[in-house]
Simulated scan of single mutants.
Amino acid sequence: LVLCGICGCRMTIRYYLRHGELSPYYICQREHIEHGVPLCQYIPGQAIDAAVSRLLLETMTPISLEVAMAVQQEITARQEEAHVLRAQQVARAQYLADLAGQRYRRVDPNNRLVANTLEAEWNAALKALQEAQQEYQHHHQQDDLLINEAVRAKVMALTTDFPRVWNDPHITDRDRKRLVHLMLEDVTLIKSHEITIQVRFRGGAIQTLTIPAPLKSWQTWMTPLERVQMVDNLLNEHTDEQVAVILNDRDLHPGKGGAFRGRLIGNIRRAYGLKSHYDRLREVGMLTAQEMACRLAVDKKTVMEWRQAGLLRGYLGNDKGVYLFEPPGPDAPTKRMGQKLSKRRQILEAKYLPDRAKEVQYES
């Protein structure tokens, strides 16, 4: 029933078990079997079967059947006119054959040349009569399929019986195939960026459907684009592992299911070309610990100690514990011998407190 739209060969069908259900695949493999060339087409058939099923259910409606029967009545009227013309041809052939027979019977038997000529004309007339009668009988048998009221009632009953039978869960796929064979002549498939389905009904009517090409298995595992956008927004202020924790707290899942992990967030970043949290901090001017040490003329270890003490503001750049720092301002910290870091932090916090906060502190 299924034809390949590229080479015109019949396509075979295979069934695979997917998620506990049988999934059909249409394969054009004749040239592959006979000559070892690559497969012409290999098309998943689940979406195709669903599209053809919808077409059949939409076609079996009272309006469409009424139109079809009206057309059939018009064809029947024209067939009756042709029937009269063919009957007249048979009558004329019968008249010519009788006339030729009369001429042959009236000829003088001694005039053998004339008798042979009339006999040949009579045989030709009889042959023409036989051909006209055979043509008349052949067309008469074909025109015998007229729609009467009983047949019309049965046809209209199909509009309710067919959907009920088609959707009956007790009907097997084999029975549905038999129904399809009764209604369709063939189905032609062409797969490109989409699948084109050309359905030819018995009687000559053709319907063309277009459906999207099915996703590959790896494409079904891809994280939805709205979640990728959410990851992009969260990376402005969070590392990969922090983003994963936030998404899991919101009860969101990746395309393949399960929970988000920092490594998975990194894979999403690389797949969609998203910048990491570290790169985003660098773009806004954040400095590494080594660069900050050079700016302040101190050791890198001192920079980390000052960050822990609160003298420098650092931001976690990745999940490996690497920090980036705001560029030092005019009040950048310096080394002070004999003064504890905790004491310097209290002085620094008091220096930058708003005036009202200072007043409240003094009152207390």
Rank of each mutant, 00 (worst) to 15 (best):
R174V: 13
R174T: 13
G257T: 11
H140Q: 15
V245K: 14
L57E: 10
S364L: 14
Q29A: 13
Q290G: 08
R174I: 11
Y104M: 12
L264N: 01
E349F: 07
E185S: 10
L1E: 08
G45Y: 01
E135L: 07
E74G: 06
D161E: 11
S64Q: 11
I43L: 06
V114A: 09
V107P: 01
R86V: 02
D240F: 10
R54S: 14
R295T: 08
T160W: 06
Y104N: 04
E119N: 08
H170L: 12
H181P: 01
W122M: 13
C28T: 02
P109W: 00
T223R: 06
K275A: 13
L65A: 07
W306I: 08
G314Y: 04
R152I: 03
L235I: 09
H19A: 15
H193Q: 11
P333Q: 05
Q41W: 04
R261Q: 10
V298A: 14
K256D: 10
T172F: 06
M69A: 10
D49Q: 13
Y272M: 10
D144S: 15
P327R: 06
Q308W: 06
A205R: 12
R282N: 06
Q134G: 09
A244L: 05
W218F: 13
R14I: 07
D232R: 15
W166G: 03
Q290E: 15
V180F: 01
D108S: 05
K358G: 03
L296D: 12
E305D: 09
L85S: 09
R78D: 10
Q346D: 14
I246C: 01
R200M: 07
E21N: 14
A297H: 15
K358R: 12
N116E: 13
R164G: 00
G262N: 02
D249V: 09
Q102P: 00
H138Y: 11
L215N: 07
V67D: 10
L96E: 15
R105S: 07
P328E: 08
T61S: 15
G255W: 01
E21D: 14
V165L: 12
V180S: 12
E121A: 02
Y25K: 06
G273W: 06
A297Y: 13
G8A: 11
N116S: 08
A115E: 00
A128K: 04
